[in-house]
Design a protein around this nucleic acid. Structure first.
Lengths: 230, 230
DNA sequence: AGGCTCCTACCGAACGTTCGGTCGTACCTA
DNA sequence: TAGGTACGACCGAACGTTCGGTAGGAGCCT
């Protein structure tokens, strides 16, 4: 085999194994030696293809975020009505998480593993913010032109996004319903959510909820960069 | 201070710090020394209150899962209609995640950190299955008596549950909408979801979605214990 | 009340292991 | 033969955990 191809292949196999292991065990619980064993190398061999363990994670996350952004902006190009844009955001985010569960799990859950303040982390946070801005704008536009009625835009956006991203945790291609059905269902839920009026309270009596004696007092997360921490 | 009180206090402070650190950085990325520093001890001192790092995690998860189950069963005692039971499941799970975000983050996300096959892990999986059984039954009962129309019960259950559990990632008590509003909103969404008929497909063209060259092929998770791997 | 003993909560230091990462070299291919 | 790929051996640091020791409150005896 051609050397260049061989190198590219090894590099890709490392990425594939890394996504799998990072998604399953988590970044911190995955050692470079685990990764090397998975691709049939020693840990030293891995370092021929990767600058550092953290740089590998950053590469994966950057690629995932960027791929999501590119696809989203491409699909949004000729869609203008806020409801249509929101529907497209919902179905594309859902489908991406259903079809690439490992990559998206790493993308969504390993931000905390990047060194705070590092350029790589800041860059990926910026990418995530850029993506979320599409959601923010779609929702704000819908509220502005009267097609949406929403009490708390941030809450609505985060709730809908976490509904979509949760897909990577449970979707299976061999389930009883197709991806098309899931997307259609989620779009319907999302559109219903942004068209609801304020409802009567229905929260359970707090005294009936479980109490955990070790739960720390609520503190705001790091407020830098829009939504940096969470 | 009394010695017994002193011991109980230290034990509780260790638990509180552990929940905070495990929720923020993850179990694997938190060292016993980090934990000890947080409560003003040496790492050796921590081991006076805890059998092992993993046993500490198991204790936290068992307590959280058990507390959720107890509260849920208590609240469900006199509620019989499937729709009412589902509404109660949604609002109590949401409220628990909103009010105890750190504990629930650990509960929901650190199962993978418990040694596979260990008694502690199996016990916690059994608790989780017992909790999910309430959801399964509520949904199945609603379908059986005709009050729900659902294409895929597993999908519906997991989607609704991940909507509720996602709350711990973004809810803030000082946001624009109250916990009551969030619960009411989620209950409305959930009830709408189980009363929808099958809809037309609206999934995006797969060729437009992002592709990640490193995404591993889809494989079923460990099939033991109902939904063991999740 | 005072003294004595026991026990509990914790510390300082170290254990063996594993971590992320480096370096010199051998092998393979072009 | 030249160049790049991967290996074996290794580094310092950090990991979870253990162990002997100690300060001081608790309980008992007088």
């Amino acid at each position: 085999m051609d050397l260049k191809d061989r190198d590219a292949d090894a590099s890709r196999r490392i990425r594939t194994a890394a996504v799998l292991l990072f998604a399953r065990r988590g970044y911190a619980a995955t050692s470079v030696r685990d990764l090397a064993r998975e691709v049939g190398m020693t840990n030293a061999g891995v370092y021929h293809h990767v600058a550092s363990k953290e740089a590998l994670l950053a590469d994966l996350m950057r690629g995932a975020q960027q791929g999501l952004i590119d696809a989203t902006e491409h699909m949004l190009r000729d869609v203008h009505a806020p409801a249509d844009r929101l529907a497209l955001l919902i179905s594309s985010l859902t489908a991406t998480h259903a079809l690439s569960p490992m990559t998206t799990r790493v993308m969504d859950g390993e931000l905390r593993s990047l060194t705070p303040g590092s350029p790589a982390r800041d860059e990926i946070i910026a990418l995530r913010d850029a993506y979320e801005e599409h959601w923010r704008r779609a929702i704000a536009d819908g509220v502005a032109d009267g097609s949406f009625r929403i009490a708390d835009q941030r809450l609505t956006r985060l709730a809908l996004m976490s509904m979509c991203t949760g897909t990577s945790e449970w979707y299976r291609p061999d389930g009883d319903s197709t991806l098309e059905q899931v997307c259609a269902e989620f779009v319907a839920i999302g559109l219903a959510a942004v068209r609801s009026s304020v409802r009567a309270a229905a929260a359970p009596d707090p005294s009936l909820l479980p109490e955990f004696p070790w739960e720390p007092p609520h503190v705001r997360n790091d407020p830098s960069s829009a939504e940096a921490g969470r």
